[in-house]
Design a protein around this nucleic acid. Structure first.
Lengths: 241, 241
DNA sequence: CGATAATTTGATGTGGCTCAACCTACGTGG
DNA sequence: CCACGTAGGTTGAGCCACATCAAATTATCG
């Protein structure tokens, strides 16, 4: 039950029934975190990894003045900091955006998986490299797209990920982030995010009211923002629609 | 001999002598590539991974108009596309910058390592996550730093990596990249890179003449550009100096 | 020595930032 | 139930960092 969203839409078939059972048995009891709560601070040694069951989390680096740059947004089904297993400490902070439900897996138990289940180890490895692939696309977004495109691209990515775990129908979805959060993700100021959202609204591509995002014209939006979901490594069936 | 730079300065001690021997035996004979040569194109299935023995390589995504955004620069000792092993295909292109000497490892042989050597598998996993950590820092660089800082930060990163494999003495090093290449890495235009290099020169922090980069004042440069090498996961001894 | 790539400099345009004000929704306590 | 505080969102005016376009100068290399 806990891991029923894990890797959904991505090579799930390569997890055997026994693998999944082994995964379920790894997890400690589920716990809850409040919104806007810091989970891990840069540099501290980490000995458990967190799997996100419900809610929104983010990873970020901050500059000298404490300004944040988000480097990832996580949603249900994501192994948020599995990379802390080989790395042992993190180079960035992790915090919740909304209230979250999580399951934590001690690293010593993962050692068992590495020793006994090479196939599953490779799939865990794969899931951390998915994050790396998304990082690369974020670099592209910041380096080569202008403000409207960055927003469009960001929303396309979030929508595709949510759809893979059944949290978007392809038209509308809940995204409880403020415009300031989105600004921190896209390397823009909140003021400019506001103006660009207005432009997307006027262009009849996307409307965000509160936490409800409605994609009025997804294909136009992905064309505008040069979004191509190959980097999400989704199975053909999900990527197409 | 081939892998004598692998992970240098980073948890090398966790590779046993037998591990290293196993690694050396994995590699196919060494081969050479010309400068400005594409090695792997986005999307094509990959069944071998490339280890860089000598030269400079880069990974990049390009936008609709063919404009490149570099997402990584690789130097000797890097397992350039080990991540292709779990991923099976890549989300970006890989090309040489200078002429390169490489060793290629077939993925089937890595399967053997996954099955027999969990400790070494974890170290290989670790090395791919190092790339992810660098990606995150690149996101930060593009999202939160201005042009001079981006350049300073980029040079600090390159210098630290080169120093870890003995290719920089902490003062000067060879970097055979054009200003246009650097622009593609930092999300700037070549013209503006040129002007900002001039500024770094005038501020007596860094001079680039041809491919020789001289860091006149490394500590001032890293302060200016908010460079902190923790994300490179270097052993204390190398990180300090 | 000539051709071509790389660097340098100048002039001008503009996308996104800054600062500042105002508006709206919502939760809390009087 | 209203008053008020606060967080989030919206809008305007002015400015600046970086882009763009264009041309000249300097390396590099067959």
């Amino acid at each position: 039950m806990t891991f029923d969203k894990f890797l959904l839409g991505r090579r799930r078939d390569q997890l055997t029934h026994n693998d999944l059972l082994a995964l379920e048995q790894l997890a400690l009891p589920i716990s809850d975190l409040p919104a806007r709560h810091m989970l891990i601070r840069e540099g501290e040694p980490v000995s458990v990894s967190t799997y996100l069951v419900e809610g929104l989390m983010c990873r970020y680096k901050d500059d000298r003045e404490g300004q944040r740059q988000l480097v990832a947004v996580h949603m249900p089904g994501d192994f948020v900091d599995l990379h802390a297993y080989p790395l042992k400490r993190l180079d960035h902070d992790i915090a919740t955006i909304t209230a979250c439900r999580i399951a934590q897996v001690p690293h010593v138990r993962l050692d068992g998986i590495m020793a006994d289940r090479p196939g599953m180890s490779k799939l865990l490895w794969f899931s951390t490299l998915l994050d790396a692939a998304m990082h690369r696309e974020w670099i592209f977004r910041l380096g080569r797209l202008d403000a409207v495109q960055r927003l469009g691209h960001f929303f396309c990515e979030v929508e595709a990920k949510l759809r893979a775990v059944g949290l978007s129908d392809g038209k509308a979805f809940q995204l409880p982030m403020t415009q300031a959060d989105i600004a921190e993700a896209c390397g823009l100021t909140p003021v400019h995010v506001n103006r660009m959202l207005k432009e997307l609204r006027e262009r009849k591509m996307l409307v965000m009211r509160g936490s409800l995002v409605s994609m009025l014209d997804r294909s136009a939006l992905s064309r505008l923002s040069e979004f191509d979901p190959v980097y999400l490594f989704l199975d053909a069936s999900i990527a197409e629609h």
